[in-house]
């Protein structure tokens, strides 16, 4: 099946990628080419075959529910693009715009 520019734009929004119209066109072309190669999988008769989500027959890996040391606040914030030293800073996401909005 072929994927339209409209669908490419929708997928980019779902994937949280701000793509230019030029990128929408070129990635759309790539996706269509790749899907053209892998579409054969839709023709396979897989009626009644169980899906495999995981290669091993694993059971739940249980452990004791015990408190262990994790990352320090300093380490957790070390790589953040914006912090106030105690928390990650982000643009306002709820409520009316504040003074800085």
């Amino acid at each position: 099946m072929s994927i339209s520019p409209e669908q490419v734009r929708h997928v980019a929004l779902l994937a949280r990628l701000a793509l230019s119209e030029e990128q929408i066109a070129s990635f759309g072309e790539d996706l269509n080419s790749i899907l053209g190669h892998i579409d054969s999988i839709q023709q396979l008769d897989l009626e009644g075959v169980e899906p495999t989500a995981h290669p091993l027959e694993v059971v739940n890996a249980m452990r004791e529910d015990r408190v262990r040391p994790g990352l320090s606040r300093e380490d957790a914030l070390l790589n953040a693009p914006a912090t106030d030293g105690t928390a990650f800073l982000i643009p306002q996401i709820v409520g009316p715009g504040g003074d800085e909005a």
């Binding site: 892998i38 999988i41 839709q42 396979l44 897989l46 075959v49 169980e50 899906p51 495999t52 989500a53």
Partner: peptide
């Protein structure tokens, strides 16, 4: 279903 579901089933056949 058309893609991910089919692929997971094909994975079973390969296993």
């Amino acid at each position: 279903d058309a893609y991910y579901g089919q692929a997971q089933k094909a994975r079973t056949l390969i296993k």
